[in-house]
Simulated scan of single mutants.
Amino acid sequence: MNQGRLRRSIAPQALARFKKRVRELTPRTGGRSLAQIALALSRYLIGWRGYFGFCETPGILRGLDKWVRRRLRAIVWKQWKYGRHRFAELRRLGIGKDLAAQTAGSPHGPWRISISPALATAFPNAFFKRLGLASVYVKPVE
């Protein structure tokens, strides 16, 4: 497609600033619901997409979307706090008993667990879309 010519990309400094700002908007503690966090975060993501959405490296934008969703899953895991509550919530969201027990009893931290199959199934991308979370990546119209 773009062979033989340069492609517009996002500077590494801008990506670092983006991640720093998202971390500020999504503290893992603070007593805010996921819906409140998603609303505040969406405003920033829409503005950022308006400025950087012209880039010709969609893989970077899709990667940022994945990173944001993983961060939100880690927040949920942190909010659930204890193994029993985590197990009960995973079961309530339709996760099988064995997978819920294995995930809830895991010694790993929230960031590591946020990429687990249990949380990916409990909180699919469509869940975040219903929550109102904006995407950084918008598929170009051809």
Rank of each mutant, 00 (worst) to 15 (best):
L133P: 10
L41D: 11
T26Q: 06
S9V: 06
W67C: 09
E89F: 02
N2Q: 13
L45K: 09
R49F: 02
I75Q: 12
L45S: 07
L41R: 10
S116C: 11
P140R: 04
I37P: 02
P107I: 03
P58V: 03
W77P: 11
R86W: 01
I95P: 06
I37H: 03
A14R: 13
R8V: 03
L34N: 01
S9R: 13
T121V: 01
G31L: 03
T121R: 15
A122T: 09
I115P: 00
P27C: 09
R84Y: 07
I115D: 15
A16R: 13
T57C: 10
K139S: 07
P58L: 03
G105Y: 02
L34E: 13
R7V: 13
A122M: 10
W48L: 02
F87Y: 15
G132Y: 12
A14L: 02
R21S: 05
Q36C: 07
Y51V: 05
T103L: 08
A104Y: 06
S33A: 06
F123S: 00
W77L: 14
I60L: 15
A16G: 08
K78Q: 14
F52E: 01
A88F: 02
A104M: 08
R91A: 09
R8T: 03
P117H: 15
A35K: 14
L61Y: 01
T57S: 09
P27M: 08
R70E: 09
K81I: 04
A14V: 12
W77E: 10
R91V: 08
F87K: 13
G4C: 10
S135I: 00
A38I: 09
A40S: 15
R130D: 13
A88E: 14
A16Q: 11
F127E: 01
K78V: 05
R49Q: 13
Q36A: 13
A88P: 00
S135R: 10
S114R: 06
R43K: 10
T26R: 06
G31D: 13
R32A: 12
